[in-house]
Simulated assay, not measured.
Amino acid sequence: MKLEVCNVSVAIGGTPILHDVSLDVAPGEFVGLIGPNGSGKSTLLRTIYRSVRPSGGTVLLGGADVWSLSARTAARRTAAVLQNSPTPPGLTVHEVAALGRTPHKGMFDRETAADREIVVDSLERTGMLGYAERIYGSLSGGERQRVLLARALVQEPELLVLDEPTNHLDIRARFELLELVHTVGVTTLAVLHDLDLAARSCDRLTVLDSGRVVATGPVLDALTPEVLSDVFGVTAVTERHQDGIVRVTYGARPLARAS
């Protein structure tokens, strides 16, 4: 399902946060949203999953304005994996994942065999089926992130939005999680802070700075030495190596000189 963000502006408490932001994510594509702290990345995600209403512009999913949908329909179509997602620690892994069926159920509906099959399939895809009866609060950070991704997949969404999904994870867990996201085949927009991880993991990148899009496109086109210097304040180059992987290489003196 295609995501289109068209000239979106957001102001919170009278303070402008986003200014005419436009981007798109093609069906099945994994796009990284990067930028320095305070650039508006998380605010943009919140606008897409209907937590913050834009003051201008539209967010279209499959051509439909997400803000014209009912809350239930929007929740069925978009799943979000957020930093510090509030999850009762006393629930089992299966129970946490099963929460993803909530948008598909009425108030008095019970879990069906079909629901259980979807939960089992999502836990299996994320490598967490063997942990189904473990208490969620007893898991490591990487394991919890996998469970939250499983819960998102249980929603059967058309769009997946991730806000710093690799935050606080060790390097192996970061690679494993983003590789897993690639395999699920759902249209994905992810906020990432690790530039090297974003460069090697994403199909395309969109760079935000001070609430505006300053670069977008394939990794080598979006993450140029000029963008790295002007936006992130570092001296670096982005290159595709012989193994096909795009990597960010920082200079011996990585801090860009102030002009």
Rank of each mutant, 00 (worst) to 15 (best):
residue 11 A to T: 09
residue 188 T to G: 00
residue 104 H to L: 10
residue 114 A to F: 12
residue 139 L to D: 07
residue 56 G to R: 03
residue 100 G to Y: 04
residue 132 A to S: 13
residue 153 L to R: 07
residue 74 A to Q: 01
residue 210 S to H: 13
residue 195 L to S: 01
residue 117 E to Y: 12
residue 140 S to N: 11
residue 195 L to E: 01
residue 148 L to K: 06
residue 259 S to Y: 09
residue 74 A to D: 00
residue 188 T to R: 01
residue 83 Q to P: 05
residue 111 E to Q: 11
residue 207 V to G: 02
residue 24 D to R: 11
residue 161 V to K: 10
residue 85 S to W: 04
residue 253 R to K: 14
residue 63 G to A: 01
residue 220 L to D: 04
residue 29 E to K: 07
residue 87 T to H: 03
residue 5 V to A: 08
residue 30 F to K: 07
residue 155 Q to F: 09
residue 161 V to Y: 09
residue 160 L to G: 06
residue 26 A to V: 07
residue 44 L to D: 03
residue 212 R to H: 11
residue 115 D to Y: 13
residue 104 H to W: 14
residue 137 G to I: 12
residue 54 P to M: 05
residue 12 I to P: 06
residue 13 G to N: 09
residue 6 C to G: 13
residue 147 V to D: 05
residue 181 V to D: 01
residue 91 L to D: 11
residue 153 L to Y: 07
residue 35 G to W: 02
residue 171 I to Y: 13
residue 32 G to C: 14
residue 2 K to P: 14
residue 10 V to K: 05
residue 146 R to H: 10
residue 159 L to C: 12
residue 186 V to C: 01
residue 125 R to V: 00
residue 201 S to M: 08
residue 148 L to E: 11
residue 165 P to V: 06
residue 180 L to E: 06
residue 87 T to W: 01
residue 238 T to G: 05
residue 229 S to I: 04
residue 130 G to N: 07
residue 134 R to D: 02
residue 254 P to S: 03
residue 190 A to H: 03
residue 140 S to F: 09
residue 31 V to C: 10
residue 257 R to S: 13
residue 239 E to C: 02
residue 74 A to V: 00
residue 170 D to I: 07
residue 257 R to L: 11
residue 69 L to R: 02
residue 34 I to T: 09
residue 140 S to T: 10
residue 74 A to H: 01
residue 188 T to C: 01
residue 4 E to T: 09
residue 64 A to H: 04
residue 182 H to M: 15
residue 60 L to F: 00
residue 203 D to S: 13
residue 87 T to M: 03
residue 13 G to H: 06
residue 152 A to K: 08
residue 44 L to F: 02
residue 186 V to S: 00
residue 24 D to P: 07
residue 152 A to F: 11
residue 160 L to R: 04
residue 229 S to G: 13
residue 191 V to C: 09
residue 67 W to H: 03
residue 55 S to C: 08
residue 137 G to Y: 12
residue 5 V to P: 06
residue 52 V to I: 11
residue 145 Q to P: 06
residue 29 E to C: 08
residue 156 E to N: 11
residue 165 P to D: 10
residue 255 L to M: 10
residue 1 M to L: 15
residue 52 V to Y: 03
residue 21 V to A: 08
residue 12 I to W: 07
residue 168 H to G: 14
residue 32 G to H: 04
residue 54 P to R: 02
residue 137 G to F: 11
residue 114 A to E: 14
residue 135 I to R: 14
residue 237 V to T: 13
residue 18 L to H: 03
residue 166 T to P: 12
residue 198 A to D: 00
residue 246 V to S: 10
residue 238 T to A: 14
residue 57 G to N: 02
residue 180 L to V: 06
residue 154 V to P: 04
residue 137 G to R: 08
residue 50 R to T: 12
residue 75 A to K: 00
residue 217 G to V: 06
residue 106 G to D: 13
residue 227 V to P: 07
